[in-house]
Each structure stands twice: as structure tokens, then as C-alpha cells.
Design a protein around this nucleic acid. Structure first.
Lengths: 124, 124
DNA sequence: GTAATATATTGACAAACTTCAATATATCTG
DNA sequence: CAGATATATTGAAGTTTGTCAATATATTAC
């Protein structure tokens, strides 16, 4: 791969190290979108919220989530909001309580997105 | 699911909203480890680095990575270091240049980790 | 040795994230 | 209505992250 330096059109051309062209298969916007999705997942409290909501297929109230996690109520609400804004869960008020549930279609889309990324990595 | 308040052993028991017990299937340390792994992936530049390195199965020098990405050289080095510290890539100096390569076994482990998490979510 | 090139590290700065006390809002009960 | 409970929001403080100019280190060429 190492070749001597040379001029082209009177301009010194960097040479020696290199793969001449890098055609990316992952565009800027694709990378940004995937990174945002991964960032939404990349917090232990949010992962545990998803795990709890997925297990309790029905709906779980915030007070139970708070009881199951080592953070205070405003922090639970904060992470629930991020997950809701990201479309991964939905919340519904019933009387005093707000019940959250996982959105399995959205989760499936995320899974596919990540799966596809790894598949692209695989085909070297 | 809604039941009236009641005393148990003389202590007022919260009642009404709730799933009485939440047995988590995702422990604190599991969630933390998965979150750390996802955080390592959760940046567009790092995703693109992985994509480039995966495609160019051999080794790619930093100068090419820098040329392919919209950040300066120290920033590329910074992200390469994170990926290397996380075990996802490896670097090797050859003369002036340092060539990086993807570590496919490590990538496969990450993939399995994430896959397993989604599987656990699935079995409601 | 000096000069040039490639990469890594340092340090500074800004932006984003996390947490929580305090407070606001909504609902129920009486 | 007032009082109690559940959840959301605000605002402040600390922490982490991302970027890059400047600098350091390593290698090559002369």
C-alpha cells in the first residue's frame, strides 16, 4: 500500500499511508439518527424502565417505577419523559395515577435499526 | 388492580395504583454495563469510524479517517482512543502511520449483548 | 544533527446531561 | 371548599462529553 510521493498537476500529493478513497456506507444523517437512538437507550435507569415496562405487559404506575429504582421521583419523571418523547413508551392518566406502557412496535423499529447497522458492519 | 387502603402490621400500606412487586430481570450492574456499551456506540463520529473500519477490512490510517470525517485530527484521535479503550478497535503503528482495524469478535459480543437485551424485553 | 510528517496528549471552553429540592398541577376525598 | 396524594415541571448545581488550538512524541528523510 505504501507508494512514493509524487506530483500531480504541480501539486504535492499526499501518499504512502493510504487507502485513496473512503466511500462511506453510513451517511452523516444516518449516523446522527442512529446515535440519537442509541443515546436514548444509553442510560441504566432508562434501560431498567424499559425492562420493567416490557415485563409488566399491562401498565405500570410511576409510583411503582419510583419504588423499583434508586432515584427520586423527579428523576423518574425526567427519564420517562425522554422515553416518551422518543416514542418508546406511552403514558395514560387514570385517576390520580399515570400508567406507562412500552410501545413494542417502536422498540422493534429500534431493534431493526441497530440490527441493520451491525449487518452493514458485517459485510466487510 | 385498584384496591382500598388498608393497614398491615399497624402500618399504612400504600394501595390503589399498583403492581405490588416489581421483580426486575435487569440488575443494576447489567443495566450499567449495557448503558456503557451503548454510550460508546452513541456518537455519530464513532459510528462512522466503525463503519469505515469495518468496510476496509484491512487497516486504515488516521489520516484517511480524518479526511473522511468532518472533525479535526485531535477529535478523531480522541474518538479512536475511546473505541480502542472500549476494545472495539485496535491500532498498530507502521512507520509514521498508525493503522486501525475493527475487532470483529468484540463487535460480535456487543451485538449479542444488545440482542439479548431486546430478547428479554420481548418475552413479556 | 535539522526539517517534515503523522499521531497523541494536554488544557481550555462550551454544551449537554443528570440529579434533586422546591414548586406547580391534577385528581380524589370528605 | 380544604387536605391529601400522584405526577410533572422548574431551576440550580455538579458532572460528563465534545471540540479544537497548542504542544508533545514518534518516525522518516536528508
Amino acid at each position: 500500500m505504501v507508494v512514493p510521493n509524487q506530483d500531480r498537476d504541480g501539486v504535492k500529493v499526499r501518499a504512502g499511508c493510504c487507502t485513496p478513497f473512503i466511500n462511506e456506507q453510513l451517511t452523516d444523517s444516518e449516523a446522527t439518527q442512529l446515535a440519537e437512538t442509541l443515546s436514548l437507550l444509553a442510560h441504566p435507569i432508562r434501560l431498567r424502565l424499559l425492562a420493567i415496562l416490557a415485563r409488566h405487559a399491562g401498565h405500570v404506575c410511576v409510583c411503582d417505577l419510583e419504588a423499583a429504582l434508586p432515584v427520586k421521583q423527579p428523576t423518574v419523571s425526567h427519564h420517562l419523559r425522554l422515553l416518551r418523547d422518543g416514542g418508546l413508551i406511552e403514558g395514560e392518566r387514570r385517576g390520580q395515577w399515570v400508567y406507562y406502557a412500552i410501545r413494542r412496535e417502536a422498540l422493534a423499529r429500534v431493534r431493526t435499526l441497530i440490527h441493520t447497522f451491525f449487518d452493514q458492519l458485517g459485510e466487510s
